[in-house]
Amino acid sequence: MAKHNPMHTLIDLTQNQANEAARQLQNLNASRDDAQAQLSTLYVYRQDYVERLEKATASGISAANYHNFRQFIATLDEAISQQNKIVAQLDQKLEQGKQRWFDHKRQLTSYETLLSRQEQERIQRDNRKEQIMTDELSSNQFRRHHNTH
């Protein structure tokens, strides 16, 4: 039975961490897309109200209604500002998530490379041992054959 190499445990753990980082990255990306969609909706909504205000102003509007329109547009501007901050925060988290995923993948590659090197070294050691045993066997057979003659 082959001995368990601790590198396999490290590789498994790191692979799990990379998978989890990828899932988190996917969730962050979806959240960022949703936030961007909400921001776009707010921009469209604001543009619609600006156009309504322009039409109402052209056809005549009371001061109170004009004030209400302006107040509502200001509220939309504030919502847009807040949504821009949310998108920026999600962009930052997304970059951090990408870096975390990349770090785990790089670590995983390092462990796999190290395991591969260990395996190559083990094969070389086994081949050398086998060669030594074969050489000894041949030498012993040669001596026996020459000693009997």
Rank of each mutant, 00 (worst) to 15 (best):
S138F: 04
Q99M: 09
R117P: 00
P6W: 08
E119K: 08
S110M: 11
S59Q: 05
T75P: 06
L115W: 01
T148Q: 15
K105L: 05
N127W: 12
L115C: 03
E95N: 12
K55Y: 13
Q82M: 04
E121S: 05
S138Q: 09
A63V: 14
E54H: 05
N19Y: 08
K85V: 04
L28M: 03
V50C: 07
Q71P: 11
I61P: 09
N140S: 09
H104E: 00
Q15R: 15
I132F: 14
R100M: 01
I80N: 04
G60R: 01
D12R: 10
Q71R: 13
D33H: 08
Q38I: 01
Q36I: 04
L108C: 03
E136T: 03
Q82D: 12
Q96T: 02
L76G: 02
R117M: 08
G60E: 04
H146C: 05
T75C: 05
T14C: 15
T75H: 11
N29D: 09
A63Y: 10
Q24L: 00
E121F: 02
K3Y: 13
E54C: 02
Q82H: 09
A58M: 13
D12E: 14
K105C: 00
G97C: 07
E130A: 15
D77N: 14
L39K: 11
R117L: 06
V44P: 07
A79S: 14
N84G: 11
I132C: 04
A18V: 03
K98G: 06
Q24A: 06
S138I: 00
N5H: 09
Q96E: 00
Y66E: 15
S139D: 11
R143S: 01
I86L: 15
K105F: 03
A35S: 01
A63D: 15
Y66A: 14
D135F: 07
Y45I: 01
N147P: 02
D34I: 00
N65L: 08
Q107P: 06
R46C: 10
F69G: 10
L25E: 03
H8Y: 12
Q92T: 01
D103T: 05
Y45N: 12
K85S: 12
R122E: 14
R52G: 07
R32K: 11
Q38K: 14
A64D: 13
Q24M: 07
E112N: 02
Q120S: 06
M7F: 00
I73M: 09
A30G: 10
D91F: 05
F102D: 15
L94W: 05
R117K: 07
T14I: 06
M7I: 01
K93V: 00
H8C: 00
Q124F: 05
T134Q: 14
N68Y: 13
Q17T: 01
K3P: 01
Y49I: 00
N68H: 12
A63G: 13
R144W: 00
N29K: 12
S40N: 15
E130N: 12
M133E: 13
N140C: 04
F102R: 15
T75F: 09
A21E: 00
S138L: 08
K98N: 04
A21L: 05
L25K: 05
D126L: 15
M133H: 13
A74K: 06
A22N: 07
M133F: 07
D103H: 10
N84V: 06
M1Q: 04
R100C: 02
Q131I: 01
R32N: 06
L25S: 03
I11H: 06
Q124M: 10
N19A: 15
L115M: 03
L39S: 08
A74L: 09
A63L: 11
